[in-house]
């Protein structure tokens, strides 16, 4: 909680300038944004996620995400001692929250635990999706965000196959690949992402690894963090605190 407040204080100045920019109708990369001064990441505290679906809805509204596809989504996990066999569901990406499980469908027995895991593009430093793009329509920006150039994408779908996390989809009308942009149109103006803005518990925190004052450094020092599927060695930059081993 405390962390998110301090975080916002550091951003307020820049955000104020940016908003004037937006109002003035010149919403490009704001003049005080230096692309090489940032290296964006995200921190997710699994223990703070309440599965409300705010992030999914906010993302869909902010980014015009087509129905049935997701740039961020929430999974509900249930597992016991057999962590290889978790029970997972994500009805409509968790957009409308989660109903209690139907009677008799959950795990019983000792050691059963349940939790929510928000997912999004990991903005990998060594991203397999940009590696396979045949034409350079998807790429990692100098500030560490993996983006897609919709005017250049062929729609060959190779990147969708190469993402180990299922973060990409093909837009049903535009026929190009899409995924989380880490709200590049917001973070370059000093705003946080839509999902972080809408998260009521501070489970999600946008982080700038190049900013020495970013609270993420303090957090990483004191907590164990993990990335999804570390065996894939993709240099994932969405860090999870309190992540259970059953999550994949």
């Amino acid at each position: 909680m405390n962390m998110s407040r301090r975080f916002f204080i550091t951003l307020t100045g820049a955000a104020g300038i940016a908003w004037e920019h937006v109002l003035a109708g010149t919403p490009e990369i704001s003049p005080n944004y230096k692309i090489t001064d940032h290296w964006w990441a995200m921190l997710i505290d699994v223990d703070k996620c309440i599965g409300c679906g705010n992030c999914v809805r906010a993302c869909a509204a902010e980014n015009n995400v087509p129905e049935g596809f997701f740039r961020t989504w929430i999974e509900r996990y249930q597992d016991d001692e057999h962590i290889q066999d978790p029970l997972v569901d994500s009805p409509n990406g968790g957009m409308n929250g989660f109903l209690p499980r139907a009677a008799g469908t959950g795990l019983t027995g000792n050691g059963v635990k349940e939790f929510f895991v928000p997912k999004l593009c990991n903005h990998c430093a060594d991203s397999p999706c940009t590696q396979v793009c045949p034409v350079g329509a998807t790429f990692t920006t100098p500030d560490g965000v993996v983006l897609i150039d919709e005017k250049y994408c062929l729609g060959c779908r190779y990147c969708v196959q190469a993402c180990p996390y299922g973060c990409r989809y093909i837009h049903p009308e535009k026929n190009v690949a899409q995924k989380c942009t880490l709200c590049y149109h917001r973070i370059t103006k000093g705003l946080t992402t839509a999902c972080c803005e809408a998260c009521p518990t501070g489970s999600r925190q946008l982080a700038d690894l190049k900013n020495p004052n970013d609270p993420i450094h303090e957090f990483m020092k004191k907590h164990s963090v993990q990335v999804l599927k570390p065996q894939m060695a993709t240099g994932a930059k969405v860090y999870y605190a309190n992540l259970d081993g059953s999550v994949r």
């Binding site: 590696q131 396979v132 793009c133 045949p134 034409v135 350079g136 329509a137 250049y152 994408c153 062929l154 729609g155 060959c156 779908r157 190779y158 093909i170 535009k174 026929n175 190009v176």
Partner: peptide
């Protein structure tokens, strides 16, 4: 078949114009 499955067949020339060296498909 490759051409027909592309979302944007009209952009397929990009494979020749700006081939991405790290991509097997390029």
């Amino acid at each position: 078949p490759l051409q027909l499955h592309l979302g944007h067949p009209e952009r397929s020339l990009e494979m020749y114009l700006t081939p991405h060296r790290s991509s097997a498909m390029a």
